[in-house]
Design a protein around this nucleic acid. Sequence first.
DNA 1: AACACTATTGACCGCATGGTCAATAAAGAC
DNA 2: GTCTTTATTGACCATGCGGTCAATAGTGTT
Lengths: 219, 219
Amino acid sequence: MAKTPHSNAEKPKARPRQRRKDARPSEIIEAAIAIFAERGFGAARLEDVARRAGVAKGTVFVYFPTKDDLFRAVAQTVLTSHLERLHGAAADLDRPIAELVPMFLAQAAAVIGEGRLPAMMRLLVAESRQFPDLARVWHDEVVSKVLGMLTLAIERAQARGEIRPGNARLYAFSIMGPMLASALFREVFRDTAPLPDLPELAEQHARTILDGLLLPDAS
Amino acid sequence: MAKTPHSNAEKPKARPRQRRKDARPSEIIEAAIAIFAERGFGAARLEDVARRAGVAKGTVFVYFPTKDDLFRAVAQTVLTSHLERLHGAAADLDRPIAELVPMFLAQAAAVIGEGRLPAMMRLLVAESRQFPDLARVWHDEVVSKVLGMLTLAIERAQARGEIRPGNARLYAFSIMGPMLASALFREVFRDTAPLPDLPELAEQHARTILDGLLLPDAS
DNA sequence: AACACTATTGACCGCATGGTCAATAAAGAC
DNA sequence: GTCTTTATTGACCATGCGGTCAATAGTGTT
């Protein structure tokens, strides 16, 4: 961990102090998201968060009494930012499953591809033991809801005779699983492996799930 | 983090010292796997690892100069223990895909359900940024190989006209994704949600992937 | 301009824990 | 039994970082 030789050729700017009580929390949270995503919760230093937020270390503690509290705030922020998008998709569960699945997966690809959800997933996976309450909240607010929506849509389609009988919840796993897996894949192997193209995966997986891999036997 | 009131009604046994140079490393690694799995790398204390291995803290450092080294040893151990099983499965890539996929998924369900691979996955996901070299090794030794085998099997089946054309690597994601996702799901939500039954998922997902969700239109 | 209020600061503290090492005692040689 | 070797120990050190707080300086008020 060699440290830059400390060349004080120029001081770090000493920007004049500013008072912006109400802008601070979100700025600090934003910085924390970046730092946590980069180093993980345990290895992240609050001083780095502070610097990134353009603030002194003490200021962080003014708004978040504890590192844990900051992490909770981060999780909560990312969560709510995604909840809104989720509510939007709650409509049209009764459309034909052959339309719904591709839409669903394309949507998932978009969310995963752009936002900070994958990084948050990584953090939650990493810290689920240290913060079981956060795991629970995310489960109840996101995972369970998404899974529930999908399951419901599937059951309705089954009732309509569109798709095969079978455990609807497991079908939901079949549908979502590859998207989640590839989201984490991208996080973990970002610099190591060729990353799967999300929209392409979404599109092909939708077709696969609906029609199956097998070609009709032409023999 | 209240500490037990330190009732020294009985000392921790003071077991007589033993010298077993060659048995130590594996014992320590075993203990480390347990502790890391339980608390994560960052939060794990080497003293706990030592106690669990029935050894003094200093002894750990005799065999593993650094906490990082211990983690690497842990990752390496779990890796090799799974590599053997992998080689076994390398055979029969040319069997009909309709047999291969269910076998593959059932195998995956078994490995995930019993061993310490899910915990190791969690650790790797968590620490992939701190230990990019480990991420790379796991990718090259496990992920890439599994994906490669599957991809190859799929391409051959395509050449035989068994299954649809399409990006074989993404097909591999479609096949494995749900198993990986549910492995992590179980790790993260172990105490929070009803856990999907792995063999059942494997079996149903195999059928879904092969035949698709849609029923032939009987209208 | 003087003042009051308080957001902000950064030097400081304490603790937890990774890491060291001189002392100790098992195990074997004789 | 005595001696040698060295695996093992646990008290100890050093450091990094979470967390505190008296001092400081924006900002609005008069």
